[in-house]
């Protein structure tokens, strides 16, 4: 990947801004901002916070799924749904 990038020459400012905009559209409550260095730094900070919150959600949901599976009977509808999905 690095060699492919370097063979194409340095990436342009325009392409960086395009990637920044794409990243911005993935954030919750994203507002349109300028493309200055300060706003890019703020965008990256929001991106880091968003990734951390998603990591925490995966942890919390793993905990809840673990508890639910402990109480789930092997013949319960949930287990049957999983088996039917895997069979298809």
């Amino acid at each position: 990947m690095s060699s492919r990038r370097s063979s194409r020459g340095s990436i342009s400012e325009e392409e960086i801004n395009e990637l920044i905009s794409k990243l911005q559209s993935l954030l919750p409550n994203s507002r349109r901002r300028g493309s200055s260095q300060a706003s890019t730094t703020k965008l990256l900070k929001e991106t880091c916070n968003y990734i951390k919150s998603l990591h925490r959600e995966v942890d919390d949901l793993s905990d809840r799924l673990s508890d639910l599976m402990a109480t789930m009977d092997h013949n319960s509808p949930g287990a049957e749904i999983i088996r039917s999905i895997l069979r298809s």
Binding site: I11, I16, I20, L26
Partner: peptide, 11 residues
Amino acid sequence: SSLLEETADYL
């Protein structure tokens, strides 16, 4: 630039 692309896909 690769970091930005990978971050979007990871998100």
